[in-house]
Amino acid sequence: MATGGRRGAAAAPLLVAVAALLLGAAGHLYPGEVCPGMDIRNNLTRLHELENCSVIEGHLQILLMFKTRPEDFRDLSFPKLIMITDYLLLFRVYGLESLKDLFPNLTVIRGSRLFFNYALVIFEMVHLKELGLYNLMNITRGSVRIEKNNELCYLATIDWSRILDSVEDNYIVLNKDDNEECGDICPGTAKGKTNCPATVINGQFVERCWTHSHCQKVCPTICKSHGCTAEGLCCHSECLGNCSQPDDPTKCVACRNFYLDGRCVETCPPPYYHFQDWRCVNFSFCQDLHHKCKNSRRQGCHQYVIHNNKCIPECPSGYTMNSSNLLCTPCLGPCPKVCHLLEGEKTIDSVTSAQELRGCTVINGSLIINIRGGNNLAAELEANLGLIEEISGYLKIRRSYALVSLSFFRKLRLIRGETLEIGNYSFYALDNQNLRQLWDWSKHNLTITQGKLFFHYNPKLCLSEIHKMEEVSGTKGRQERNDIALKTNGDQASCENELLKFSYIRTSFDKI
């Protein structure tokens, strides 16, 4: 039985969820670079991206490699990797027998973001014989899940209580170790020597080791999670996991709180800001991140802002960003909400898709409305799209047979046209069989910064309504002859009103 693990408890099935942008060198404390989270699957090609990484700022997932063999891993080693800020997950990587050479110096898994409450997941690794993470000293947050690894031993010899604050939620089941077939031998045991430290858990006094050649490092209890030197002297209180010299914040392997210019500090002093819960960055760093993602459509890219001495992905609820200094300031009234469309555009074809934009005031991208039916549609669209004030790209209304009016965009005031449909149009209306009105132009103002209007096959939309939009939106004169079809717009509506004058002759039985 794995020490510190839980057996036999019912657990939810383990679901495996399925960018080499360097964020800056980590400095003297770390020998390499800070790398983003990685999802490495199918083959070993991307694994080489770990070569210079000291910190993975995010998670590391290595999974679904069915053609790899043990010899493929023999020359692979990433000794610079010290810390993973989120979680480490391995799933069905064939041929991998140990992690001792792959990650010989991995010391800390912070667990800032977890995989279903777990910071370390080893699942269905069919050839893994031992973990071998002999320098792993601290899992700051989260638990361990090690399950269905039929060859995995050296679990009962690990004292997880020396690595985690609590072992109650560890789930370590259905491994070879369960069948008591392992016969784990710690260093020196074969020669009758006791080389590794022994600890007591559940009444068992057991030597602690990761492999037959690597003991588990056990520091004096007084050192807590700070770690200790090879001689057993406690590291500085700002260290986490390990250090090369005692009581020196510049000799830590990793930091308990924050890293700044080669030393570990309790908090980031001005003019620095907390970033990702582990390091200090200056304003320029946060500003660069903001600008890199301002026009990016890459998933996970955030326009970072500053709030409460932190550089964070977005302002919290009730705050909006001051564009001059990136500071989050309290909103006066309802907060603006910028919604970034991942692929640059979004099609609204149902109430469900409209709900995804609920509360958005600025759309960074283009909207395509293609709704053919739905219950209580006008009210639903207004509830979900009615706060949109600005669209950076274009607005396209296409084959939306259920629409009679666009009044559900009740606050839309600006279409920038930074991206144009077919390279020309910022407003595009095609084949809307029941569209009769755009907006009530006596109450609604709309500016279209650039781009043209396109109207074709809107049989109940009168040309007068379209011409009014040209005047109000500032697009009059931009359109070419064929942009607004004269014969297919309003051709099934009563669009022309003329005053009919009647004269009559009164007659009676005795007068003409």
Rank of each mutant, 00 (worst) to 15 (best):
H28C: 11
H28A: 14
L29E: 13
L29G: 13
Y30A: 15
Y30R: 02
Y30L: 09
G32K: 04
E33F: 01
V34R: 14
V34L: 08
C35T: 00
P36C: 02
G37T: 13
M38V: 05
M38L: 04
M38I: 13
D39G: 03
I40L: 08
N42R: 09
N42V: 04
N43I: 04
N43W: 11
L44F: 10
L44D: 07
T45P: 15
T45W: 15
R46S: 12
R46C: 15
R46P: 04
R46E: 11
L47W: 15
H48S: 08
E49R: 15
L50P: 01
L50T: 03
L50W: 06
N52L: 13
C53K: 00
C53G: 00
S54V: 13
V55F: 03
G58M: 00
H59V: 13
H59R: 11
L60T: 01
L60R: 00
Q61E: 15
I62S: 00
M65R: 02
M65I: 06
K67L: 05
T68H: 12
T68G: 06
R69A: 13
E71A: 14
F73G: 09
R74L: 02
D75A: 05
D75Y: 14
L76T: 03
L76A: 15
S77R: 10
S77T: 15
F78W: 05
F78M: 15
P79R: 06
K80S: 12
I82T: 03
M83V: 07
M83D: 02
M83K: 03
I84T: 00
T85E: 06
T85Y: 03
D86Q: 14
Y87G: 01
L88M: 06
L88S: 01
F91R: 02
V93L: 13
Y94D: 05
L96K: 01
S98Q: 02
F103Q: 00
F103K: 01
N105E: 04
L106S: 00
T107K: 08
V108I: 02
V108A: 14
I109A: 01
R110A: 10
G111H: 00
S112R: 12
R113V: 01
R113T: 15
L114S: 06
L114M: 15
N117A: 09
N117P: 06
Y118I: 15
A119W: 01
A119I: 00
L120R: 01
L120P: 00
L120H: 00
V121I: 05
I122S: 05
H127K: 02
L128K: 00
L128W: 01
E130P: 01
E130M: 15
E130Y: 12
L131T: 12
G132R: 01
G132Y: 01
L133Y: 02
L133I: 10
Y134F: 04
N135D: 07
N135G: 13
L136C: 04
M137N: 09
M137K: 10
N138I: 04
T140Y: 07
T140F: 06
R141Y: 07
V144I: 07
I146S: 02
E147M: 14
E147D: 12
E147L: 14
K148C: 13
N149V: 02
N150Y: 12
N150C: 08
N150F: 05
E151G: 14
E151S: 09
L152P: 00
Y154M: 07
Y154L: 06
Y154H: 04
L155C: 15
A156T: 04
T157M: 08
I158A: 08
I158L: 11
D159V: 08
D159E: 13
W160K: 01
W160S: 01
W160M: 11
S161Q: 15
R162P: 10
R162C: 13
R162N: 09
I163G: 01
L164V: 15
L164S: 11
L164W: 02
S166I: 06
S166L: 06
E168D: 04
E168G: 02
E168R: 07
N170K: 07
I172G: 11
I172L: 06
K176T: 14
K176L: 06
K176M: 09
D177N: 14
D177C: 09
D177H: 13
E180K: 10
E181S: 11
E181A: 10
E181H: 03
C182Q: 05
C182R: 08
G183K: 15
G183T: 08
D184N: 05
I185E: 02
I185Q: 11
C186F: 08
C186Y: 03
C186P: 00
P187D: 05
P187C: 08
G188P: 10
G188N: 09
T189E: 13
T189I: 11
T189V: 10
T189G: 15
A190H: 09
A190V: 11
K191V: 15
K191H: 03
T194N: 09
N195Q: 06
P197G: 15
P197V: 13
A198I: 05
T199A: 13
V200N: 13
I201G: 05
I201L: 11
I201S: 04
I201D: 11
N202V: 05
G203M: 11
G203E: 14
Q204L: 08
V206G: 12
W210I: 13
W210A: 07
T211A: 05
H212V: 08
H212M: 00
H214R: 05
H214N: 14
Q216K: 09
K217R: 10
K217G: 03
V218G: 09
P220T: 13
I222E: 04
I222W: 14
C223F: 01
K224P: 08
S225C: 13
S225M: 05
H226D: 08
H226V: 07
H226P: 08
G227E: 02
G227N: 02
G227F: 03
T229W: 06
E231S: 09
G232W: 08
G232M: 10
G232A: 04
C234Q: 01
C235F: 00
S237E: 11
E238F: 04
C239V: 01
C239P: 00
G241Q: 05
G241H: 05
S244H: 10
D247R: 10
D248F: 02
D248T: 02
K251M: 10
C252V: 00
C252M: 03
C255Q: 00
C255S: 00
C255G: 00
C255A: 00
R256V: 07
R256E: 07
N257T: 07
Y259A: 04
L260V: 13
G262H: 06
R263N: 04
R263S: 02
R263C: 02
C264I: 00
C264F: 01
V265Q: 14
V265M: 07
V265C: 11
C268T: 00
P270C: 04
P270H: 10
P270A: 09
P271N: 04
Y273S: 05
H274R: 03
F275Y: 04
F275I: 04
D277M: 09
D277V: 06
W278L: 09
R279A: 12
R279N: 08
V281P: 00
V281I: 07
N282R: 13
F283L: 10
S284R: 08
S284G: 04
S284M: 09
S284C: 02
S284K: 11
F285V: 04
C286N: 01
C286Y: 03
C286T: 02
Q287R: 15
Q287E: 04
D288A: 09
D288P: 02
L289D: 08
H290W: 14
H290V: 13
H291T: 01
H291Y: 15
K292L: 15
C293Q: 02
C293P: 01
C293K: 11
K294M: 02
K294Y: 15
N295K: 15
S296N: 15
S296R: 10
S296G: 13
R297C: 06
R297P: 07
R298N: 06
R298Y: 04
R298Q: 06
Q299V: 02
G300M: 13
C301F: 04
H302S: 11
H302C: 08
Q303F: 05
Q303E: 10
Y304S: 02
Y304M: 07
Y304D: 03
V305W: 07
V305D: 02
I306Q: 01
I306H: 12
I306T: 03
H307Y: 03
H307A: 06
H307S: 09
H307V: 08
N308S: 09
K310L: 12
K310W: 14
K310P: 02
C311Y: 04
C311A: 02
P313A: 04
C315F: 00
C315Q: 01
C315L: 01
C315E: 01
P316R: 03
P316L: 06
P316F: 05
P316A: 04
P316T: 03
S317G: 12
S317E: 11
Y319L: 03
Y319F: 15
M321S: 13
S323H: 15
S323I: 13
N325C: 14
N325E: 14
N325A: 15
N325T: 06
L326Y: 01
L326Q: 07
T329H: 15
T329K: 10
P330R: 14
P330V: 08
C331M: 05
P334R: 15
C335F: 03
C335W: 15
P336K: 02
P336F: 03
